[in-house]
Amino acid sequence: MPIAFDKVSHIYSAGTPYEFKALDDVDLEFSEGKMTAVIGQTGSGKSTLVQHLNALLLPSSGTVRVMDREITAGTAPKGLKKLRGEVGLIFQFPEYQLFEETVLKDVSFGPKNFGVSEEEAQKRAKEALRLCGLDEQYDERSPLELSGGQKRRAAIAGILAMDPQVLVLDEPTAGLDPRGTEEMMKLFRTLNTKRGKTVIIVTHDMEQVFVYCDEVVVMADGKAAAHMSARDFFADSSICRSMNILPPAIIRTCDALREAGFDIPKEINTTSALAKCIARQVKRHG
């Protein structure tokens, strides 16, 4: 079931001096089973866009179609709770949502809200915690005792335990160390490829988009400025640059090398492949 935005606008504080149009007539369709990155500058409407996906925000006008449901202006859709179980939304810095006495209780809070039995919820919580890299020793600890990175993992596990079909992540790796970032991104990619989950991820990190994502949506001034496959998006660095986005380091390196007279094929996308390619050419020139 694709997720579609049909002429969706969202206006904050309508009718006050603080009025702000965060989404402006957005037409967009997220492909099912793909990992899509939503990028764009701060204030471009990314977070507003994704909060429509589980009806936390309702459109000011237009229609959002998610999992067979229509979300329109002013009408809270029926079966709202079920929708929120199917579309798991992880906010930026999700660690502030932790509140239970133990990590295990907190992670099983989500599934229990959706009517899963106590034992089943615990089972799912444990599974989600292991997926996120927190082993048994953390189960009975208070979430407030964990380190920042561990809190983040526990909070993400709290959504994964709900077993949503669509996973929406708003800058899930902001503030994590490089290793933690890589582990989390790999986890999301695995959930996408192995379990067929649709993953929508808001990010500022072009390296992540380049390495992990299938498709890219670019938001600019509340409009969907572009929607294309990640491959096409990065194939020509002029697309990135025209939107004021710094391409990933590897693309920039390839560009610089091309300018310096090296012959770098388009399909090169890893550091090791690039190194080999350069080595060959350097040797040839003796």
């Binding site: 939304l89 502030y96 949502q97 959706f114 709290g158 709900m162």
Partner: peptide, 13 residues
Amino acid sequence: MRIMKAQESRGVD
């Protein structure tokens, strides 16, 4: 508001 939204996403009514 932020926490409310986060918890609503976890099925809190």
